[in-house]
Amino acid sequence: MSTSTCQAGNFADEPTLLAALQGGDDRAYHFLVVTHSPHLLAVSRRFMRNEVDAQDVLQDAFLSAFKALPSFRGDAKLSTWLHSIVVRAALMKLRARKPQWKRELSIDDVLPRFSDGFDHRDNPGPAWRSTVEQELHSKEVCSLVRQAIDRLPEIYRVVVMLRDIDGLDTQETAELLGVTTTVIKTRLHRARMALRELLDPSLAGV
């Protein structure tokens, strides 16, 4: 069956879809995979920054989901459940990768500096232009922000994604990454400061 022929059919409501999946209905599996893969692959690409790894993660995630489906009670929406499985699969894949620190930016190089003896920020520069808030939806600014996030060292990039994009809270993020909530708060603040510095040359007024 081609993806183009997949119809919502009887699977538009989740309890029906879940019952069909748990009954081993092939059409339900097809519907689940075709419907959710575009968003889930986009999530995986954001974490992995590499198409081969992103596709591997999506496969691993669906395999985990298929195994867990018999015991899934529908407490969360399927989309939320699958999203969390993809995030876990991506984090596992990132942990298994060789450390990439040699190629990474040092976060300290992009944090504000204070060296005048009075704790004033070095070269504060002008305020950001007044139109920035309206530009945040533009392709240009979205692209700048993505590029800046991609430049962050992985331990900071992952925290920004989990907290600010995937919407996890501090406790959930800490549990997923196996660190304390204090570490998460510190990394998130440093990551946002670093992103501000990376965006500053493009968004500051004249």
Binding site: W128, L136, S143, I165, R192, R196
Partner: peptide
């Protein structure tokens, strides 16, 4: 200015992946 640009950065992050 720093506080405003930090807040704008925070808002921009999820929008970049909308």
């Amino acid at each position: 200015n720093y506080v405003e640009s930090y807040k704008t950065t925070h808002k921009a992050i999820p929008l970049a992946y909308a």
